[in-house]
Design a protein around this nucleic acid. Structure first.
Length: 669
RNA sequence: GGUGAUGUAGCUCAGAUGGUUAGAGCGGCGGACUCAUAACCCGCAGGUCGGUGGUUCAAUUCCACCCAUCACCA
C-alpha cells in the first residue's frame, strides 16, 4: 500500500492576530489537521506548520487603541491561538509568528532575489495621509460619501451600496477613521513587483498543481482581466519589516505573511536534525508542499505567492487546496443571532471531537461553503458517533469483560465480514487523500451499521444463557470489537482523542493505518469506559446564548405583507426619457448602452434588451426610466437608472412607452 | 452586469457517460429486542430531482433560457 514514504509539508493559512478564532477559522484548521493526521497514520513524513500573521496597519492601530505595543498584542493573541488550537487537537509541528527573525531574513532574501532580477521597481503613487497621526491611510481607513451614488459612510476603495470602485481622494467629505480629521492626498514612492510578467509561468504552475475546477475557473478569470503589478511597500509608521536600503518603507503585510510558512518551517528545522530546509523550499527535491486556504485568499496564494517563489528561484507549492466558508444554520455567522461562536466559547461547552466529526462529515475538496446546522449537529453526532460507532464497543465489551476476563477469542467468528471492512481501507484512504472526508465518513458509518446488524443477528445476549454457546459469545464479541477497532483506526485522523481512548481500552500501544486490516486476537483488553458521551442540546443552546451580543437597536421588523403605501411609491422617481443614442456594448451579449435625455439632463443607462431591439430603431423613442435609482457600477461603466420593460427576457422583452405628447423629463405618477 | 458555484424527500446530503420502482442518514409513524450511553434491529411513509422550452424512442441526468441563493470582480 503506502509504497513510498512521502515527504510532505503542509500549511494552514496564518490567522491574523487581531481577534479570536471562531467556528469559521476552524473549518480550515480541522480540515488540514485531519489530512495531516491521516498522512502521519499512513506512515508518511508529514510536517504541519503555521504561524500568527502579525503585521500591518490593523494590528498597529488596534494595539494603539488598547494602549499597548503591537509586539505585546500579537504575543498575547498568538498565545490564545495556540491554546485554542491545542484544545481542538490541531496538532502543528510548529506554530510560530511572522514577527520573527527567520521571517525577516527570508522575506529580505526573496525580495533581494526579485530585485536583482529586475522584478522590483518603484513608482510614485498618491495616497490619503492623516496629518494629525502622521501616517498614510489604507483605503479602508478612510470613509466618506460615495462620489457615484451619494451613499454615506463608505470605505475609501469601494461603495457597498452601488459597488463602484474608486480611490479615497474621490470620496466626498472623506474622514480618517484613525483621527477623525480630513485626510490630505500625498505622493509617496512605492515598490512594485512585476507580477504582470509572470502570466505564462503561473499558467504552467497552475497546470501542474491540479487545482480544483472552480479555482482554475477563477484564475482564468483573473488572467483574462490581465495581471496587474503588485504594490509591496507601505510607508512608515508601519508594523512590519523595513525594506533594506530605505529609512521609511516597509514590506506590505501580504508579502511577508506567506513567507511565514517557510519561516515557521525554518524555525522548526533548527530544532529537528531530520529536517533540511532546502529540501522543502528549493527546487530539485522530491518533496511535496501544500497550502490549505480559504477561497477568499486565493489571489495571494495562487498568483502572488507562486510568482514570488518562482521569481526568486525557489520551488513552487505542489498544490493549493481552497475550501469554502462556513454558514451557521444556513446563514452568515451573526453576533446578534449568537452564531458567531468563538473557538473558546465552543470549548467551554462542548467536546472538540463533535465538531471535528461534523465538519468531516460535511467537507469535500471543493470551495463550496458548508453549513453548521446546530440541530443537525446534535442529531448527527449523537446518532453516528454514540449510537452507531461507540455503541459497537459498548455492547460487546461487557461480555468480554465479565465473562471472559477481558480476553479476546483467538479467532474471528466471521472473517469474511472483517475482510470486508479491511477491504474498504484503500477506498477510505483514497477519500482522505482527495479531501473527500464526507465520503470517507459515509463509508465508515455504513460499515458501522453492518457491525451493529451483525451483533443483532448473532444475539450474544441470548447465547450467553446457553452453556454450550460460551465460546460463540466470545467469538461474536471479539468479532464486534475488531470491527469497531478497524473503524476507529479509520476515524483516528478525525477523532484523535476518541481513538486514543479506544486504543488504550484495547490495550494497544500505537496504531497505524494498516493495523485496521489485521484483527486483534487473544489479547486481554481493559475495562470499558464510555469513549464519548452524547451532545446535550442544552449545552449547544448555552453556547449560542453566550455568543450573543446585545445590540442597542434591533433592526426594524420587516412588514409582513407586501403592499406599499403611496408614500413608498412616490419615492420612486419615474420619468419619461427620450433615447438620444443607443449603442451595443463591446463584450456584453445582452446589454445596450442607452444615452437618455431627461429634459434637464442626460444620463447613461445599461439595459438588457439587445436581443429584442435593434439599436437604430430605438433612437428618439420615448421610454420610462427610474430616475432616482442608485447608480450601479457595471463592468462596462456606471448605469445611472433603469429603463422599464416587461417580459421574461431574451427576445421577449417589451419596452414601456408613453402615449404621444409626453416629453422628456416628465414625472410619471 | 460579468464570471463561477449551488438549487434532489421536513432536515443534512449522495447519485445518475440519458433508459425498468431516484438513494442514505437524521426526523416522523408502526413493530421487534433488551447486550448497549432510551442505543440497536425490522418495516412504513414520501420527492412531478428550482421553472419553462428544446434535442431524443426516452431527461431529473444533455442544450437553451429563466428564477432563487451564495461567492468573486484584485
Amino acid at each position: 500500500m503506502s509504497a513510498d514514504r512521502r515527504k510532505i509539508l503542509v500549511t494552514s493559512a496564518l490567522p491574523y492576530a487581531n481577534g479570536s478564532l471562531h467556528m469559521g477559522h476552524l473549518v480550515e484548521y480541522l480540515q488540514t489537521d485531519i489530512w495531516v493526521r491521516f498522512q502521519k497514520l499512513r506512515g508518511h513524513d508529514c510536517i504541519y506548520v503555521c504561524a500568527s500573521d502579525t503585521h500591518g496597519t490593523p494590528i498597529m492601530i488596534k494595539a494603539n487603541e488598547l494602549g499597548e505595543s503591537p509586539e505585546s498584542l500579537v504575543e498575547r493573541v498568538s498565545a490564545e491561538f495556540a491554546r485554542d488550537f491545542a484544545d481542538f487537537g490541531v496538532d502543528f509541528d510548529n506554530f510560530y509568528t511572522t514577527h520573527s527573525p527567520e521571517n525577516e531574513q527570508l522575506t529580505v532574501e526573496l525580495y533581494e532575489a526579485l530585485r536583482e532580477k529586475g522584478d522590483i521597481y518603484t513608482k510614485s503613487i498618491e495616497q490619503a495621509y492623516d496629518e494629525k497621526k502622521g501616517m498614510f491611510l489604507p483605503d479602508r481607513y478612510v470613509r466618506g460619501t460615495c462620489p457615484v451614488c451619494g451613499a454615506e459612510d463608505q470605505y475609501g476603495d469601494a461603495c457597498e451600496n452601488c459597488h463602484s470602485t474608486y480611490t479615497p481622494a474621490d470620496l466626498i467629505d472623506p474622514v480618517s477613521v484613525v483621527s477623525g480629521t480630513t485626510p490630505v492626498t500625498r505622493e509617496s514612492e512605492h515598490y512594485f513587483f512585476r507580477l504582470s510578467d509572470y502570466e505564462d509561468r503561473l499558467k504552467a504552475w497552475m497546470a501542474s498543481a491540479k487545482l480544483d475546477r472552480a479555482v482554475v475557473a477563477k484564475l482564468d478569470e483573473w488572467f483574462e482581466a490581465g495581471l496587474q503589478d503588485w504594490d509591496i511597500s507601505r510607508d512608515a509608521p508601519y508594523f512590519g519589516f523595513r525594506i533594506p536600503g530605505t529609512d521609511d518603507k516597509y514590506f506590505y503585510v501580504w508579502l511577508d505573511a506567506p513567507v511565514g510558512y517557510p519561516a515557521s518551517f525554518m524555525n522548526l528545522c533548527a530544532r529537528r536534525d531530520d529536517l533540511d530546509f532546502d529540501e522543502y523550499w528549493k527546487p530539485g527535491h522530491d518533496t511535496e508542499v501544500y497550502h490549505f486556504i480559504g477561497k477568499d485568499i486565493m489571489y495571494f496564494h495562487t498568483l502572488f505567492w507562486p510568482a514570488v517563489l518562482e521569481g526568486a528561484g525557489w520551488r513552487t507549492p505542489t498544490s493549493v487546496f481552497a475550501h469554502g466558508f462556513l454558514t451557521v444554520n444556513g446563514q452568515k455567522m451573526s453576533k446578534s443571532r449568537g452564531t458567531f461562536i468563538t473557538a473558546r466559547t465552543y470549548l467551554d461547552n462542548l467536546d472538540p471531537n463533535y465538531l471535528r466529526y461534523y465538519y468531516a462529515a460535511k467537507l469535500g475538496p471543493t470551495i463550496e461553503d458548508i453549513d453548521l446546522n446546530l440541530e443537525d449537529f446534535v442529531a448527527r453526532v449523537n446518532s453516528d458517533l454514540v449510537g452507531k460507532l461507540v455503541n459497537i464497543a459498548s455492547r460487546c465489551a461487557g461480555f468480554i469483560g465479565k465473562r471472559f476476563d477481558g480476553k479476546l477469542a483467538d479467532s474471528l467468528a466471521d472473517p469474511a465480514l472483517f475482510d470486508e471492512v479491511a477491504a474498504a481501507s484503500e477506498r477510505i484512504a483514497g477519500h482522505y487523500e482527495q479531501r473527500e472526508y464526507s465520503k470517507a465518513m459515509r463509508l465508515v458509518m455504513g460499515l458501522a451499521d453492518k457491525a451493529n446488524r451483525y451483533i443483532d443477528e448473532h444475539k450474544p445476549w441470548v447465547m450467553i444463557k446457553d452453556e454450550s454457546q460460551q465460546d460463540a459469545v466470545q467469538a461474536v464479541c471479539t468479532q464486534g470489537l475488531n470491527l469497531f477497532r478497524s473503524l476507529m483506526i479509520y476515524l483516528a485522523p478525525v477523532l484523535p482523542d476518541v481513538a486514543d481512548r479506544a486504543r488504550s481500552f484495547l490495550g494497544e500501544a500505537e496504531w497505524h493505518w494498516e493495523n485496521a486490516s489485521t484483527p486483534l486476537l487473544g489479547a486481554t483488553i481493559n475495562k470499558f469506559q464510555p469513549l464519548l458521551t452524547r451532545v446535550e442540546a442544552d449545552k449547544v443552546n448555552t453556547m449560542v446564548e453566550q455568543s450573543k451580543e446585545s445590540l442597542a437597536a434591533e433592526p426594524a421588523a420587516e412588514a409582513d405583507d407586501d403592499t406599499i403605501s403611496i408614500d413608498d411609491f412616490m419615492k420612486v422617481d419615474l420619468r419619461v426619457a427620450k433615447i438620444a443614442a443607443a449603442d451595443p456594448v463591446e463584450g456584453a451579449d445582452k446589454l445596450l448602452k442607452l444615452t437618455l435625455d431627461l429634459g434637464d439632463s442626460t444620463r447613461q443607462v445599461f439595459a438588457g434588451i439587445k436581443a429584442a431591439y435593434d439599436p437604430a430603431t430605438l433612437v428618439d423613442r420615448h421610454v420610462v426610466v427610474v430616475a432616482n435609482l442608485a447608480p450601479r457600477k457595471m463592468r462596462f461603466g456606471v448605469s445611472e437608472g433603469m429603463v422599464l420593460a416587461a417580459g421574461p427576457g431574451g427576445e421577449d422583452i417589451f419596452l414601456l412607452s408613453p402615449d404621444d405628447g409626453a416629453e422628456a423629463g416628465m414625472r410619471v405618477k
